[in-house]
Design a protein around this nucleic acid. Structure first.
Lengths: 65, 65
DNA sequence: TATTTGTGTAAAGTTTTATTTACATTATAT
DNA sequence: ATATAATGTAAATAAAACTTTACACAAATA
């Protein structure tokens, strides 16, 4: 699963730590998701979509397999 | 998190077991999600959205707290 | 009545997501 | 040049999602 978190952060001049705070997760979690180490939970994906005022589908790109 | 899986199934005359098969999870997982015992993973939410040809947001209703 | 089908649930175990602590590296600023 | 901020990563642990097996119950059906 790819995602646009890094770009969305950059557009808002936001650090991983700031995003982590806003989403109430650890900085390492944000880093791991950005680097594709694992997928966020659905609740976390929803929180990100609300924060960035867009849909989950516009942030996370699902790829089968 | 609420969801419309039961209705989406009913509209298609689909059992929990059939949906589980199509999403490649166990019947108990579908049941647990429908009953709100836990949230699906993001990949599973995506699979459901593709299967029902709609968005994640139209299937799963996020509620803070 | 007996059987089958669909659903609800529970316990034990595995896998995945997320945390905490910690340290290394890169870039920026003083 | 040195300090500071931001990022990458790793190991150990905790929490959540998911599996497997198993059983109970209600409704439909043979």
């Amino acid at each position: 699963m790819k995602n646009r978190l890094k770009v969305l952060r950059a557009e808002r001049d936001m650090t991983q730590a700031q995003l982590a705070d806003l989403l109430a997760v650890s900085r390492q979690t944000i880093n791991a998701i950005e680097k594709g180490k694992f997928d966020p939970s659905l609740p976390l994906a929803f929180k990100a979509s609300k924060l960035f005022e867009t849909s989950i589908e516009q942030i996370f790109l699902f790829e089968e397999n």
